[in-house]
Design a protein around this nucleic acid. Sequence first.
DNA 1: GTGGTCTAGACCACT
DNA 2: GTGGTCTAGACCACA
Lengths: 171, 171, 171, 171
Amino acid sequence: MLMTIDGSSSEPLYVQIRDQIVAGIATGALEPGQSLPSVRALASDLGINLHTVNKAYAVLRDEGYVAMRGRAGAVIADPSTAASPGTEAAQAKMGDELFRLALAFRARGGTCAAFLEAAAAQADRAYGAAAAGIADGAGAAAEAPHPAAFAGGAPACIDSASDSPERKAQR
Amino acid sequence: MLMTIDGSSSEPLYVQIRDQIVAGIATGALEPGQSLPSVRALASDLGINLHTVNKAYAVLRDEGYVAMRGRAGAVIADPSTAASPGTEAAQAKMGDELFRLALAFRARGGTCAAFLEAAAAQADRAYGAAAAGIADGAGAAAEAPHPAAFAGGAPACIDSASDSPERKAQR
Amino acid sequence: MLMTIDGSSSEPLYVQIRDQIVAGIATGALEPGQSLPSVRALASDLGINLHTVNKAYAVLRDEGYVAMRGRAGAVIADPSTAASPGTEAAQAKMGDELFRLALAFRARGGTCAAFLEAAAAQADRAYGAAAAGIADGAGAAAEAPHPAAFAGGAPACIDSASDSPERKAQR
Amino acid sequence: MLMTIDGSSSEPLYVQIRDQIVAGIATGALEPGQSLPSVRALASDLGINLHTVNKAYAVLRDEGYVAMRGRAGAVIADPSTAASPGTEAAQAKMGDELFRLALAFRARGGTCAAFLEAAAAQADRAYGAAAAGIADGAGAAAEAPHPAAFAGGAPACIDSASDSPERKAQR
DNA sequence: GTGGTCTAGACCACT
DNA sequence: GTGGTCTAGACCACA
């Protein structure tokens, strides 16, 4: 599990760490039960302060991604087990973020199908990704494997788009 | 175009303004060529500082949503002609945000189909929405109209999903 | 809203602050919308580091008791509004704590009625308390107003007690 | 008396042991006079360090739950004869914990009756429980048997509840 | 050895 | 002016 830090990013360091660990969990690079490096070790590896790593771990613990066992470091939590409280809150938050993105997409003149295409492309990127190295997202290229197949088969928002005739953009 | 400010939100005020204007553009409440209220007027309407509105407008300009015309105030940009420099950067950023969301979704144990279902639900919400009042996203309920239709017709991540077990076997 | 800190307590300082603010909210000494002192001001008043107060505020924010508005300090959240996510999680946690206390009470030889009496006494203390000074709990005297009335009218656990005949303690 | 340890819990190991022994005493699985396993035996059974079990026993002794008899190991104390010094301190502590819970409950907007209902539900859980396996409280569902009967018959906080509106008027 | 807590001083974004 | 973040160094509880 290789991790890198971009000190010049506007993203807080502890968020960068959090995101990479979440990505690691998602791609299977980090499996439930596996131990994370100690705060001191990771801090020294990354060349940052241990409190920063500590905060990242605390956030991950609060979000239910890892369990802290004081004694023996932090371990990846099993998502199936315990279904940490706050899960549905987190899901609602993700829904709202998707909504915001969809609005921004539409405001840019993108069609609904194009948005779903983009979502499918990113989903493929996230779900197809093996445990290979995943950068922290700065300028990633987004190679969509086969988005067209998706856009063609999804009638979901053709309806919604057609039922808002007062919308005059897209021209 | 009614706008409201939630002073107790953790979202910066200028971001709240930006989001609502973007939502207005998306829903058609604000059309290309239309003038935004002057910085002074909006600031006084909302009871906030000039600088805050100014910053919101600057962000919208940088993102290519509006064009600033010195004396004449700000007007909504036409997305089709908007070859503004920030556009592709903004699009890449949206792709990355979708990617991050997909990763977080997967890390929580969600399937690819479920993610696309959620994306479709939010897309319906964003694209189906007329120019009615759209709150700034505080805990909206979403109510996906017909997500199942989407999940059924999307071959995009059936593949990714099906190669998930064999990924598990790789280790 | 007077606050005191006991540096010799085993309770972390930030928890002491949190508890007193929660107590203030409960008793009405702090009302929804009211501003809390700034981290710097409170820290200097209490003679502790601002980071400690900051942590207390962060915990209160995470628990949904207060809203942080970066710009203008922290304000008491309205419990009726928004019903912050994680509420049911917090309630489950409180239920488990009550369960643990009930078990400890029973292990000490206390009857079920006595436990409910104690709970009623403390409930009266918490709910009857006006906005008067409430110490941070070190050796409080627990003046139960009228616990007997309660114990007499509650048939709830007479049954439960009698239906566990294998229990041989209480003698 | 089966005991289990959750190494990934945030609860210290010695507290987990203490809680399970207290639960055992409460449910009758451990009776006054009965011997606890030796420190060595329990430590080896649980696969943890001697010191950890030792600390758990020391805490139980300090709280008056068990009596240490040098060579003969630890035996469950008889609650009726237990005039141990720590007893009243422990009882005061339990009262304070109830008070803190009641305050937190009220601060979240819960009524006094609801708090007593929750307490009654947990009391039923604790007092109704036979010597069956009692997990260490991770997300147990509770299922209050008949809380309504309790809330209806308790005049204790009807008073407090009814003076709540007039308290609001005082300001 | 682990993470948790407290202190201290600095810079930054937002208003 | 506010809180948020990062750094730095120290002590403590737990194992």
